[in-house]
């Protein structure tokens, strides 16, 4: 980890990035919706001091909602299948929160094990992540449960952090981050001592207390049939939680055709939809909403951890904030292992 001082403001830094040979993605409020999008000017960018986090995570820029993975055409009976190239464009995502940066670390695992998904990985390798530490987490935040914190550098190439006197520092943890930092003249190339985490220690106190993950996993190992899952029969079965989650990565594969040409697409999909696991025979292993919610929670706190030794949740709190019926994954995880949810 290298620590450098930044001259000027956060906005100045964004401006410098825009002058470089990168596509810049940052939090914006477009049409009453906060999300990560390509920007042309630093004025569009939401200030990290004003907005805690976007409704939509940055995930869609590495793993788009809909993406063509193959092309095909027929000439009479002759079928041709065409590949789809992923452009090797350099981009930088600035303004991520530590929870969202850590989320990419988690989903890297699924897209690179056994088979390499070039669509995700090509973009991932060409994207530099600059996160901004959180001074004001809200009452849905629980990143500290996952070894992350309001100023954690996990998953970030560069983390921006303030000292007690509000000077801005860049914490650089990767080569990719260093490569970018070298080209940014706002970053003074002279290593600094750690300015401390006073602001963030205070911030941490406003968050939900860390979950006891080993205890939760132990409980999940044995309570697949627990009555508690019936609680989630109130779940409406929409895809809000999955689609706003920075770590949910499930997808569907669908063809689209016009006359004799067409494309094959990967579209986001969600385990809360009944059709997700419906067999052609009519059999559905997850035929009720409580079973589907169980899958969601198990996947995040047990299955993914069993396989990749990492949880599929970073405590960003989006699913808690946006669930239309206030299903709270933190509360659910705590109560499943017999703990009082400490919110």
């Amino acid at each position: 980890m290298k620590i450098f001082k930044i001259t000027g403001t956060y906005k100045d830094l964004v401006e410098t990035l825009l002058s470089l040979d990168y596509k810049v993605i940052a939090p914006v409020n477009r049409n009453k919706l906060t999300r990560f999008d390509f920007i042309n000017s630093a004025d569009e960018v939401l200030s990290p001091d004003e907005v805690l986090n976007t409704v939509r995570p940055a995930k869609e820029h590495l793993f788009p909602m809909t993406e063509t993975v193959a092309r095909f055409s027929y000439e009479g009976k002759k079928l041709r299948i065409g590949d789809v190239e992923v452009p090797e464009e350099k981009s930088v995502i600035i303004g991520l929160r530590p929870c969202d940066a850590a989320a990419f670390d988690a989903i890297d695992k699924i897209f690179s094990y056994v088979y390499q998904d070039k669509f995700y990985l090509t973009r991932r390798n060409n994207t530099t992540l600059i996160s901004v530490a959180c001074e004001h987490p809200d009452n849905a935040c629980f990143c500290t449960s996952f070894g992350i914190s309001p100023d954690s550098a996990k998953g970030s190439d560069i983390l921006l952090k303030k000292s007690k006197d509000s000077s801005l520092f860049a914490f650089i943890s990767t080569e990719r981050g260093e490569d970018l930092a070298r080209t940014i003249n706002n970053i003074i190339p002279e290593e600094q001592p750690d300015p401390g985490r006073d602001l963030y220690e205070a911030a941490e106190k406003n968050m939900r207390a860390p979950l006891d993950l080993p205890k939760i996993k132990e409980a999940l190992n044995t309570n697949f049939e627990s009555e508690y899952w019936n609680e989630f029969s109130r779940c409406l079965g929409c895809g809000s939680c999955a689609y706003l989650c920075p770590t949910c990565h499930c997808f569907d594969i669908v063809d689209e055709v016009r006359y004799d040409k067409g494309i094959r697409k990967k579209n986001w999909d969600a385990c809360q939809f009944p059709l997700f696991t419906l067999h052609a025979s009519g059999h559905n292993p997850r035929d009720a909403q409580n079973k589907r919610y169980r899958q969601r929670l198990m996947h995040k706190f047990k299955y993914y951890h069993d396989r990749f030794d990492t949880h599929l949740c970073t405590g960003c709190g989006r699913c808690i904030r946006e669930c239309p019926v206030n299903i709270d994954i933190y509360e659910a995880a705590a109560e499943l292992c017999g703990c009082e949810a400490n919110i």
Partner: peptide, 24 residues
Amino acid sequence: LENRMKCGLGKCGRCNIGSTYVCI
């Protein structure tokens, strides 16, 4: 076994039985 699958590559996330992916 058979479970509904889409990718067959351990990515799309639907064929799992617990931590076990039927496709992998």
